[in-house]
Simulated scan of single mutants.
Amino acid sequence: MPLPPLVPVEKYSRRGVSQFLFVPTIAAPSMIPTRAELVAGTNLTAGIAELDGWNSENQAIEVPDMSDTFDGTIPGSDKAADSSLTFYEDSTTNVTEELLKKGTVGYIVILRKGDVPTNKSMDVFPIRVGSVQPAYTADNEAAKFTVNFSVTSRPVQGAAVPAAAP
């Protein structure tokens, strides 16, 4: 009997497609922003040089027992990975540094496939800024700074992007 047919996949690069927004407030307890809340946010995408984290991971619990030499695991608690965004530093303004200064609370909204209304590719991370660190280097590269975030509660992943206003 043959295997099932392959599922077709239209591959793409996140670079140039994904959007990263800082949204200061989301009213819904579900943490799913409205279109107006997204528009009121700040699009950080063009200033991002690097990113790290922005996912959830499970902390497995080891469950060894005396009847076997294999140490099994069971799912444990979930936590967000350490998350950061590294930005290019602007030589004349401090807009991003002021927006994301230490202690700032809000949401990082990631539109993984871009602003595609109703597509279930929106992730929402409730955050507090833990630190802002300039990156010093003598290398031949653009000036940068890194913002480290604490993810303060369970993120929403795979939510539908809100419909655009008519």
Rank of each mutant, 00 (worst) to 15 (best):
F87V: 01
T25L: 08
I110L: 07
V95I: 07
A163W: 11
E10L: 10
E50P: 15
A163I: 11
N148V: 01
K79D: 12
E37W: 00
L44S: 10
S13G: 05
V116C: 11
V105N: 13
D68N: 14
R112M: 14
L3I: 05
P29E: 04
N58C: 07
K101T: 12
F70S: 04
S77L: 09
N148A: 06
S121R: 11
A159P: 00
A28G: 09
T45A: 14
G53I: 10
N119I: 05
S83L: 01
A60L: 12
T25F: 06
S153P: 06
A80I: 09
F125Q: 02
A40H: 02
I127K: 03
G16D: 13
A165F: 15
F125K: 01
S77K: 10
T34I: 05
A142Q: 02
L44K: 02
P166F: 05
L44T: 04
A160T: 14
G106F: 01
T34D: 10
V17D: 08
N140W: 06
I74C: 07
L44M: 03
A164R: 09
F145P: 00
A46E: 07
E62M: 10
R128I: 10
I108V: 13
D52K: 09
A138G: 11
F125M: 13
D115V: 11
G41H: 03
V116D: 14
S30K: 14
D78G: 13
